[in-house]
Amino acid sequence: MDRLLESWARWLSAGRTVELGGGASMLARLIDNKGELNFGSGGGGSYEPRDTLEGRVEILVYEMAKTAPLRADVLRLEYSAGCQRVAVARGWKRYTPGQDQLSHALLLGVSLRTYRTRLAEARGEIAAEFGMSER
Rank of each mutant, 00 (worst) to 15 (best):
M1K: 05
L5F: 06
L5P: 00
E6S: 13
W8H: 05
R10G: 08
R10A: 14
R10I: 02
W11N: 05
W11I: 05
L12S: 03
S13D: 13
G15M: 11
G15D: 09
T17D: 13
L20S: 06
G22R: 11
G22V: 04
G22F: 07
G22A: 13
A24F: 03
A24W: 04
S25P: 04
M26N: 06
L27A: 14
L27T: 12
A28W: 05
L30A: 05
L30Y: 09
I31N: 02
D32F: 01
D32E: 10
N33C: 03
E36L: 09
F39R: 10
F39S: 11
F39W: 12
G42D: 12
G44M: 10
G44H: 09
G44F: 07
G45C: 03
Y47W: 10
Y47F: 15
E48T: 08
R50G: 10
D51Q: 10
E54Y: 04
G55I: 02
R56Y: 03
V57S: 00
V57D: 00
V57E: 00
E58S: 09
I59F: 08
L60C: 07
L60G: 01
V61A: 01
V61F: 01
Y62R: 09
Y62M: 05
E63W: 02
E63L: 11
E63Q: 11
M64P: 00
A65Y: 01
A65N: 03
K66D: 05
T67W: 03
T67A: 08
P69W: 02
L70G: 03
R71N: 02
A72K: 01
A72T: 03
D73S: 07
L77C: 04
L77W: 01
E78I: 00
Y79E: 01
S80P: 00
S80I: 01
A81E: 01
A81T: 03
A81D: 02
G82S: 06
Q84D: 09
V86C: 04
A87G: 05
A89Q: 13
A89Y: 09
A89P: 00
R90D: 04
G91V: 12
G91N: 14
W92S: 05
W92H: 13
K93C: 09
Y95R: 07
T96M: 15
G98F: 10
D100K: 13
D100E: 12
Q101I: 10
L102I: 14
S103A: 15
A105M: 06
A105F: 03
L106A: 14
L106S: 08
L106F: 07
L106E: 10
L107Y: 04
L108N: 07
G109T: 09
V110S: 04
V110K: 04
S111N: 11
R113P: 02
T114W: 02
T114I: 10
Y115K: 04
Y115N: 03
R118Y: 04
L119A: 08
A120R: 14
E121P: 01
R123L: 08
G124E: 04
A127D: 05
A127W: 05
A128F: 09
A128E: 14
F130H: 11
G131R: 14
G131P: 06
G131Y: 12
G131T: 14
G131A: 15
M132N: 08
E134I: 12
